[in-house]
Design a protein around this nucleic acid. Structure first.
Lengths: 203, 203
DNA sequence: AGAAGGACCAGTGGTCCGTA
DNA sequence: AGAAGGACCAGTGGTCCGTA
C-alpha cells in the first residue's frame, strides 16, 4: 500500500474527508455505540456501519439498472463489480473485506432490531471492544435460524435488504452445527446424521 | 487430449458405451429429429439432447441435497461443480460446452413445445443440419420474450426446469437488440432510455 | 492489543479453437 | 464442411496477513 504522507497527526481533531486527498487515511475504527449515538474522537459508530450496508444497496441498485438498460447480466448480490462501482463513485471507505466482516451484525440489525439494540447497549456498558460485540452477534442469529429449521439462507433471502448479501461462511457453519447438536435430542433426529457426517467443528 | 486407440472402426454399428473404456470416443453428433424419432447410425437425436438437460437437473438436485446436509452453500444453477459431479457419477457424455451450446434450444422446448416440435419437423424435412436448426431456435424465443417486456431472465427464472440454467449471452443480446429496435415504433418508447427505468417485469 | 483493507488465490462462468 | 469438448482465461468470492 502507499506510504502515508506523514505519521498520524496532520489531521487534528476535525475529521472532514478531503475530497482530493491523494494519500488516503484508513477509516477510523468502529466502536460499540448505542442506537442513535454518534462516536466521538477518531472513531466510527455502529449506526454508521449499518449505513454503509444501505449505501452498498443503493450502489447495487444503480449497477442493476445500468445492466438492465444495456441488456446485460444483472447481479442480485453485492458483487466485486458493485464494490468497484462504489469506489469509482467516490465511496472509498467501502471495501469488500470490511463489509463481509460485519455482514452478520447487519443481519441481526435487520432481523431483530430490538435484540440488536439491546446487545449494543450491553456491550457498550461493559466497555467491550468491537470484536467482542461482533462475535456476540452470532448467537441470537443462530437462535433465529433455529426457529426456521436452521435454514439461514432462506432467512437471508426472505428479507429484502439482507437478500443482497452472501451468507457468511462462519454463520452458516454455526447454524449447521447447532442443527446437528440439537437434532440429537429431537425425535425426528438421527436420520440427518446417518450418511454424510461431516462435522465442521469450530467455536 | 488422449490419442484414440485406433481410427474409427473398432466399434461397428452397435453403439453400446463400454463401461470400462479407457480411451473414450466422442459422442456421436446430433441430427435434427422429429419428436419421438430415434436417430439411426452414428448419430444422436434431439430428444436425447433434451434428455441430457433433464439429467443435469437430476445431478444438480443431488448436489444440492448433499450441500444442504453438510450445511454448505447450495447452488441454484448448473455450475462447474455439477458438471464435475456428473462426470464422477459416470455421465462422461455430459460436458459444459455442449450443454451451454444448446441451452436456448432446450429453452424453446420448455417454453413452447408445440413451436419447438414444429421447427424440428420443418428443419428435418428440409434436410437442415443441427447448426441451422440451433440457429433457428433463437427467433421464436425472442418473440416470446417480446411478449414479456423482453425480459428473458424473468422468463427463465419463472420456469422450474429452465431456472437452473444461465441465460445464454447471445440470446440475451438478441432480446435486448429486439427491444431497442421495437421501442422506436412504440408509443411508450423512448422513456426507457431516459434514466434508471426499473422494469421488474415477469410473466 | 485490536482493527482496517490491499492483495492474493482457488475455483467460476464463459467459450475458443485445436481435434476428429 | 460441421460438430464435440479439452482447456484456457478474465474476472469472482472469499479472506489472510502485512500494515497502521
Amino acid at each position: 500500500r502507499k506510504r502515508m504522507r506523514s505519521h498520524n497527526e496532520e489531521e487534528e481533531e476535525d475529521e472532514e474527508e478531503e475530497e482530493e486527498e491523494e494519500e488516503r487515511q484508513r477509516e477510523h475504527p468502529f466502536i460499540v455505540t448505542e442506537p442513535g449515538e454518534v462516536a466521538r474522537g477518531k472513531k466510527n459508530g455502529l449506526d454508521y456501519l449499518f449505513h454503509l450496508y444501505e449505501q452498498c444497496r443503493d450502489f447495487l441498485i444503480q449497477v442493476q439498472s445500468i445492466a438492465k438498460n444495456r441488456g446485460q447480466k444483472c447481479p442480485t448480490k453485492v458483487t466485486n463489480e458493485v464494490f468497484r462501482y462504489a469506489k469509482k463513485a467516490g465511496a472509498h471507505y467501502i471495501n469488500k473485506p470490511k463489509m463481509r466482516h460485519y455482514v452478520h451484525c447487519y443481519a441481526l440489525h435487520c432481523l431483530d432490531e430490538e435484540t440488536s439494540n439491546e446487545l449494543r447497549r450491553q456491550f457498550k456498558e461493559r466497555g467491550e471492544n468491537v470484536g467482542a460485540w461482533r462475535h456476540a452477534c452470532y448467537k441470537p442469529l443462530v437462535a433465529i435460524a433455529a426457529l426456521h429449521h436452521h435454514d439461514i439462507d432462506s432467512i437471508f433471502n426472505s428479507h429484502p435488504r439482507l437478500s443482497i448479501w452472501y451468507v457468511p461462511t462462519k454463520l452458516r457453519q454455526l447454524c449447521h452445527t447447532h442443527r446437528n447438536n440439537t437434532s440429537a435430542s429431537t425425535s425426528t433426529s438421527t436420520s440427518t446424521s446417518i450418511h454424510h457426517h461431516h462435522h465442521r467443528h469450530h467455536l
